[in-house]
C-alpha cells in the first residue's frame, strides 16, 4: 500500500471538513471581527441531530439515502437556528463592547452548548448509524471509500456555492461591503443586522453539513467532538488568513493533508532505531523490536497547533491574508 497517496486521500477528506468548518469561523470574523469559539459546538449539534434522526428512521421502509438526506435536512435548520440565536442573544448586545467581551462570551456559549448536548444526548460516544453502503475503491495502491468521495465532492460543491453567493448575489455584495465598513454599508441601505444574522446562519448551515460528514466518516458522535474539530478548523482559518474565504478553503485542505502526512510519517521519522548506533542499549532494543518510536500516530492532534504556531510566528496574516490597506 502506498502510504503517501493514502495519507493524501485521507488528508483531503479531513481537510474538506476542516475547510467547511473554517469557512464558518472566517465568515463571522470577516463581518464582526469575532472568533466565534462556539462554532465547533454548532458542528457537534449538526452531527447529533442527524444521528438522532437517522437512528430513528433507520430500519424503516425508507431507502437509506433518503434517511441520510432527512438527517441532513433536519440538522441544517436546527444549526441555523442555533447560530442565529447565539448572535441575536449573546453577541449583538455586545457589538460595541470591547472585543474581549464577545470573545469570552463565545467561550461561554461553547461550554453551555456542550453541556446542554451532554444532557440531551448523554456523555457517551454514540455510534453514528452506518446505513449507507460504503464501497471501497482502489487507486494506484491506495484506497478511497464512497463516503470519502462524497465528503470531498460535497465540500467542493459547498465551497463553490458559497463563492457564488458571496461574489454573485446581492446578499454577497452586502456581506463584503459590511465586512469592510459596516457604517458606510448602512449608508448604502444595507441592513447590517440582517447581514450579520445571515452570516451566522450560513456559517451554521455549513457547520451542520460538516457535522454530518464527520460523524459519518468517523462513525461516531460525542458531545465534545466539536471542541477539537472547531479548534483545528480555527487553525485552518488562521493558516489561510482569517477573514478570507479562499484562505479558509485552502487552509482547511492544507491542514488536513499536513495532519494526515504528519500522522502517517511521524512514527517512522521519530524512530530512534535510525540512530541506533548512539548507544548499545538502544541497539539491543532495536535488534529485539525493530522499532523504538518516540512519537506515534497518537500525536495526530498536535500538527494543527504546530501549524498555528508557525503561522503566527512567520506569517501572522496567513497565506492569503494580505489585506489592502483599509485606510484611504
Amino acid at each position: 500500500m502506498d502510504i503517501f497517496l493514502q495519507q493524501i486521500i485521507n488528508g483531503l477528506t479531513l481537510g474538506s471538513v476542516y475547510a467547511i468548518v473554517a469557512l464558518g469561523y472566517t465568515m463571522v470574523y470577516g463581518i464582526v471581527q469575532l472568533i466565534n469559539f462556539a462554532h465547533g459546538e454548532v458542528v457537534m449539534i449538526g452531527a447529533m441531530v442527524a444521528l438522532w434522526v437517522i437512528s430513528s428512521l433507520a430500519g424503516g421502509a425508507m431507502p437509506p439515502v433518503v434517511i441520510v438526506l432527512a438527517g441532513i435536512l433536519c440538522a441544517i435548520p436546527v444549526c441555523m437556528a442555533v447560530g442565529y440565536t447565539m448572535e441575536r442573544v449573546a453577541y449583538r448586545p455586545l457589538r460595541s463592547a470591547p472585543r474581549l467581551a464577545p470573545l469570552i462570551t463565545a467561550i461561554g456559549i461553547s461550554i453551555i452548548l456542550q453541556h446542554v448536548a451532554m444532557l440531551v444526548w448523554s456523555r457517551n460516544p454514540l455510534p453514528f448509524p452506518q446505513i449507507l453502503a460504503n464501497p471501497i475503491f482502489e487507486i494506484a495502491g491506495a484506497t478511497i471509500s464512497a463516503v470519502q468521495i462524497a465528503i470531498i465532492v460535497l465540500s467542493l460543491l459547498m465551497m463553490g456555492g458559497l463563492t457564488l453567493l458571496v461574489y454573485r448575489t446581492k446578499l454577497g455584495v452586502a456581506m463584503r461591503a459590511t465586512s469592510e465598513n459596516p457604517q458606510v454599508a448602512g449608508l448604502m441601505g444595507i441592513d447590517i443586522n440582517r447581514v450579520i444574522s445571515m452570516t451566522f446562519i450560513i456559517g451554521a448551515g455549513l457547520g451542520a453539513m460538516a457535522g454530518v460528514m464527520v460523524g459519518t466518516y468517523y462513525g461516531q458522535a460525542h458531545y465534545t467532538m466539536g471542541a477539537l474539530l472547531g479548534l483545528k478548523a480555527f487553525c485552518a482559518a488562521v493558516l489561510g488568513g482569517i477573514g478570507n474565504l479562499a484562505g479558509a478553503m485552502l487552509g482547511g485542505m492544507l491542514l488536513g493533508v499536513v495532519e494526515a502526512l504528519g500522522t502517517g510519517y511521524i512514527g517512522e521519522i521519530t524512530d530512534l532505531c535510525h540512530v541506533s548506533g548512539i548507544s548499545t542499549a538502544l541497539a539491543e532494543r532495536c535488534a529485539e523490536d525493530g522499532h523504538m518510536v518516540v512519537f506515534g500516530s497518537n500525536y495526530q492532534d498536535v500538527f494543527a497547533f504546530i501549524v498555528l504556531i508557525l503561522v503566527l510566528v512567520f506569517r501572522p496574516s496567513g497565506l492569503l491574508g494580505e489585506r489592502v490597506s483599509d485606510r484611504a
Partner: peptide, 28 residues
C-alpha cells in the same frame, strides 16, 4: 431613523474621508 432606512427616502451622505470600499472595484 437608521441610515439604511433613510437612504430609501432619498437622504444620501458622502462621509468624511470618503469611505469607499477599498477592496471592492470602482464599479462594484
Amino acid at each position: 431613523v437608521a441610515s439604511h432606512r433613510l437612504i430609501r427616502q432619498g437622504v444620501a451622505l458622502v462621509p468624511e474621508g470618503r469611505g469607499v470600499f477599498a477592496r471592492l472595484t470602482v464599479q462594484e
